[in-house]
Write a protein that binds this DNA or RNA. Structure first.
Lengths: 267, 267
DNA sequence: GGGGCGGCTTGATGTGCATCAAGAGCCGCC
DNA sequence: GGCGGCTCTTGATGCACATCAAGCCGCCCC
């Protein structure tokens, strides 16, 4: 394509390592939004019981993925949105020179593929960070249903809008913050997202390798490693491989500069 | 609010300087989407003549703003979207510590306020960079119309999705690129956006000061200034204050690393 | 005209994080 | 068990860009 030119700068490829285990086969088990543990965070939020029933009729199946498996790749035709049911994903984009950028880490209840609507083609990659399961949402049908169910349309706008808001915060982080602040902010972010999902806010396992964290934060893996060690030395966290325990939530949130939006962190 | 803590890092306030001229008064002149020069880029894209008529009934009025005037501020209740008719804007978010980040520069045909839908409140600021005019779109009515007009709903999704896609590219830029690459990419980006709007791709006036460019790119004004000087020395551009002329589009696009997506730049 | 101010440029110095390099822990596999 | 390949850590060095500090230019206003 003649696109081999300029200077990447920093970094180290982070492309789908293409796992050797066979992909899990698609299961056709029916989706059950009404009982789903993340329904408050997902499409069904704000829908009546009857509306959720209609939604379930559309979201025909689930798909299981193994760690490292790609949910979609840039260039794939866009037909489905995916709602994460369990596990976690990273989204990445790739520059013309082959350089990769991790743009999100996605957790259960979040939707993947929204950026593919315009152009009818995925422009980013989504890859499972651990064995995961997603609900498959054929967008054409979803769109049709939203036309009839205002609450659903409402929720779709909500999710788009939330997504934009989150990206603004990421820009703030990347644009002007020190490595230390970025790292602290990521830990706080993951903590609060796990917490919303009913997991511990202070003890969790990072599902992604250091290289992905570094890439996401615009740093290097070495710097991430040093920062985690430093935080540990300062008794803010305890780290063992990918296991993290937050020992001093207040200190960490102050470092992150987000304590005001993290409810009652200061109380 | 007890939010006076941590380390800002770098930078220099960029908040609404609050112009001394009185704000322009709102004019009630009817909007005419059908004739608007940016309708291809705006909400009417893909709508039939009759549908555009219905859209016009909703978009009741225009609003004129002077350079430096705020269109909305974080915390304002969300009732309207705004479509830029002429001029340009910057969007910014503000961190808990008061630090500001410019997240976008917006040009005619683009929508402002999309990130405020969820939560019914603006979470960012939009400020006119020059005397500008916008169409006011009461979102409740727009939402109602979209419920009846699939093509409009479609276009709203399109715009949301485009917005997400653009943010991904910005993340790529901020996450891993050198100052030089960022600056070149911004110039190319502005160039192509002006070009889509029927203006020259190679000669334009930057409507924003160096500090805003620097802030947007995660750099300092000094670095921006040095880079522009350097590009000029290397005969890629000519700069005089805010006037920019691109002398070597190819070289600049190669520096930016985006030449593959810039149609026919290599032809 | 001249003084003040904000935006811009240019230079000198400093530093935060990348880069390079080596080694340690962990795991799957032969 | 032990080898090869990961991810992760830790240390030494260097550089890109921030920071600090003048000075310039255009513009408004007295």
């Amino acid at each position: 394509m003649g696109c081999d030119s300029p200077a990447p700068r920093r970094y180290n490829g982070v492309l789908p390592p293409s796992v050797d285990r066979p992909p899990m086969k698609d299961t056709l088990s029916a989706v059950n939004c009404g009982n789903c543990s993340v329904r408050r965070l997902c499409l069904p939020a704000g829908l009546s019981g009857e509306e959720i029933d209609r939604l379930e009729k559309i979201t025909g199946k689930r798909r299981m993925l193994r760690a490292g498996e790609a949910l979609y790749r840039a260039g794939d035709p866009f037909t489905n949105l995916f709602a994460i049911r369990s596990g976690s994903f990273k989204s990445t984009v790739i520059a013309a020179d082959g350089d990769t950028q991790v743009t999100h880490f996605a957790l259960p209840g979040e939707l993947l593929g929204l950026d593919a609507y315009s152009g009818r083609m995925h422009s980013s990659f989504a890859e499972a960070l651990e064995d995961s399961s997603v609900c498959v949402l054929p967008f054409a049908q979803l769109e049709g249903l939203a036309q009839e169910v205002p609450a659903l349309q409402h929720q779709i706008y909500n999710i788009f809008s939330e997504e934009l808001k989150k990206e603004n915060e990421t820009l703030l982080l990347l644009g002007k913050r020190s490595a230390e602040t970025r790292m602290a902010a990521l830990l706080m972010n993951i903590s609060s997202r796990y917490s919303r999902r009913g997991y511990s806010a202070t003890a969790f396992v990072l599902s992604m390798p250091r290289t992905d964290i570094a890439n996401y934060l615009g740093l290097t893996a070495e710097t991430v490693s040093r920062l985690l060690t430093k935080f540990q030395r300062e008794k803010m966290i305890a780290v063992r491989g990918r296991e993290v325990e937050i020992l001093d939530l207040i200190a960490l949130s102050e470092l992150a500069g987000t304590h005001c939006s993290y409810e009652d962190a200061g109380a």
